[in-house]
Design a protein around this nucleic acid. Structure first.
Lengths: 137, 137
DNA sequence: CGCAAACATTAGACGTTGTCTAACTTTCTT
DNA sequence: AAGAAAGTTAGACAACGTCTAATGTTTGCG
């Protein structure tokens, strides 16, 4: 089902290496919004000798090549999101967890009417509490 | 014109002190979105012996008491905004400068329809380029 | 193959941002 | 004036991200 990761990397002009594959394996498939050190911790589980610099380099490379987006949502850290299509974000007050909100769930009007700003992209950032989904799964 | 700052602080349940007034003088009146260390640098101009801890303490106190809001918009730092009414933010790609966008300039629809989230507040974060205001004021 | 160039990885130093602590000073209360 | 409470200070500390210099690994080409 999933296209081999090495292939994905090559398509994006990135030479696959053992370390990059290990990073890709986690970060391109997670639903979380990990920061770099969370990625490092995860990847160390499989490739214990990987260095911090490599993880940071790899994440930056992935962002540059369009495999990831990075956001400034949590305090004091960049978080990464493999979901590169536009969407909004909800930040849970209690846990700090970040949830994706589908683009179509909200509508922002009059962006194009703003004077003095040439908007390249935008998103709505919501904060509050997650409420339990009524009834299981 | 401006109500004395000491008064403003007392109204918000904050004992005025020389250091707090010096911080207030800058941060409550600026149009910028300074981070804590920018506030420190500014305030040191007038009160050279003020410590970093005091500035951080004071800013956190002001946020707690509702005189300031803090946002996570720039990479790796919290920024403070004396404009406590809801509004949106535009981040300039080139300079990183942050501009306030009036609440009424945009309209976000369907926030209340979101399932699974109890939204306490939200804002639109826009990124792009500032365009020169046609004709200079 | 064998070598060189290009690329990738590594450990650790470094800078910035923010928090914490313990000692000290100021202010308030009586 | 004396004690308690509140505020300030310097410096240590931790987390996050960047950079550098040295080392390893691939790749291409004779």
């Amino acid at each position: 089902m999933a296209k081999p990761l090495a292939e994905t990397l090559r398509v994006h002009d990135i030479q696959p290496s053992a370390q990059r594959l290990a990073v890709a394996e986690y970060v391109l498939r997670t639903q979380d919004h990990p920061c770099a050190d969370e990625v490092l911790a995860r990847v160390r589980g499989r490739v214990p000798m990987i260095s911090r610099a490599t993880v940071y380099n790899t994440l930056n490379l992935f962002v540059e090549k369009g495999l990831l987006r990075q956001f400034v949502l949590a305090e004091g850290r960049l978080v990464f999101d493999p979901h590169v299509a536009p969407h909004h974000h909800f930040v849970d007050d209690v846990s700090g967890a970040i949830h994706d909100v589908p683009w179509e769930a909200l509508e922002v009007r009059r962006v194009e009417k703003l004077r003095g700003f040439e908007v390249r992209e935008y998103q709505v950032v919501l904060r509050g509490r997650r409420t339990p989904p009524r009834q299981g799964s």
